[in-house]
Design a protein around this nucleic acid. Structure first.
Lengths: 236, 236
DNA sequence: CGGCGCTTTGACGATCCTCAAGCATCGTGG
DNA sequence: CCACGATGCTTGAGGATCGTCAAAGCGCCG
């Protein structure tokens, strides 16, 4: 019986095996007998732009990994306003905070672009993490990254002007979404003006004026969701 | 030999056993053979107010726990400015971010009050965490708490005015440091005006004006580092 | 066409940053 | 004992930025 089990485990390929982010996957350390368990708790799903993966206040249903696309994590406040806490790109996991903290989701996850999401159910993820120190270690590393991101954001909020932070945000988005021509990069913004405002932490009217001021500075060309920028401004 | 080892382990009391925070300690799950190892890597030290525990950019020397007092974690920026990232109170651990992230300290830790600090050396902490899933789990919980704190701060920065955030900060400090009379609470601020400014994220001049405005609102009485407030304002 | 959501623009007051100056406290050295 | 400088805190003035309220433009879809 034990032999049979071991044989079955060896036959099962890792569910992340064909993913571009397999090497860095939180579940990569899972092997042996735990592998079929992981596979049974594993599923993929496609999200259209605008579709919600989980809502704020919901109980945790698992640990999610963005396989492709882009997901926004947003915190809704009592007064109806909201703050965009994070953009989750392919290879990044989401929902792990409420998973590890054993608490309801503190943010809403919504796809900004058509996205593929891989899910490990709460039950299976809990079992794997309890048995597999490697997976736990990698989860902790993701926590550290989130702390680093948050601290960087706190610092830049306290240090830089809103205009500077918006310019920096556009540069980062340009690296991730831009297409390079000869001397220019162009992109289609994955975010609405209101999303940008919620990400920088200003009112929509101020965001509109910030964009106009950035254009006047001559570095960015912005029309609707289309943005362009000289290549030389990438590193600045 | 094995028996001898087991007997020795059973004889060794947990280094945190007499600490008020033993039950929640990151090292509480350590037992058996690992206990004497932990004890050998364990040390206590006293810090005077203003003394530095570790500097920004230094290599990690261990995981620290605030046993008593108060420690400020500060991030220094290239332009000479700095941001107060966190106040660490008794029972909280510090230095775990660079420990888990295997990177130099990103903040400076400085005692704001005379403090007792317990240290587990880097080598021993790494050994314990690799062997003891319970300790790793508790470390991850501390990471989650830090993420929660950071997100709360990001949200309140984006949502509330500096005056509101300062009032909220003073209320929290009052709960932790205040002495209650009949209808008033009084405290001696553990922070300088510049520390307050670095914590709220404004210039020292603005902090001075914010304090004056709070006084004019009639809730707080502030003279130097002495602050008073009616008991009724605690929950507001 | 009309309504709706998103975005922009204008006007005004509130808040903040910067530069500059003034004030208090404290420790040191003459 | 006092002059002195260092440090921390406060105050003032002026310009820049932001929030708020209101209104208008614009694209989209029923």
């Amino acid at each position: 019986m034990l032999d049979c089990k071991a044989t079955r485990a060896a036959d099962v390929t890792h569910p992340c095996a064909h993913c571009a982010f397999y090497g860095g996957s939180v579940w990569q350390p899972v092997a042996g007998d735990a592998l079929p368990v992981l596979t049974r708790g594993f599923s993929r799903k496609e999200l259209e732009a605008g579709q919600v993966l989980f809502k704020q206040g919901e109980d945790n249903r698992g640990v999610f990994c963005v396989s492709s696309g882009l997901v926004a994590l947003r915190s809704h406040h009592v007064d109806g306003a909201s703050t965009l806490m994070r953009l989750a790109y392919p290879g990044e996991i989401i929902g792990y905070r409420s998973f590890l903290g054993k608490q309801p989701h503190q943010t809403e996850a919504r796809a900004l672009l058509p996205s593929r999401i891989c899910t490990v159910t709460h039950r299976v993820a809990a079992g794997v993490v309890a048995q597999n120190a490697g997976a736990m270690e990698r989860l902790a590393q993701r926590c550290i990254r989130e702390i680093d991101r948050s601290h960087q954001r706190i610092i830049s909020t306290a240090t830089c002007s809103n205009k500077e932070r918006l310019a920096e945000l556009l540069r980062r988005l340009m690296v991730l979404h831009g297409r390079r021509n000869r001397e220019m990069i162009t992109m289609r913004l994955p975010l609405s003006r209101m999303d940008l405002a919620d990400l920088i932490g200003v009112q929509p009217e101020t965001m509109s004026r910030l964009i106009r001021r950035l254009e006047k500075d001559g570095v960015f060309g912005i029309a609707g969701r289309d943005v362009e920028m000289p290549l030389s401004a990438l590193s600045a």
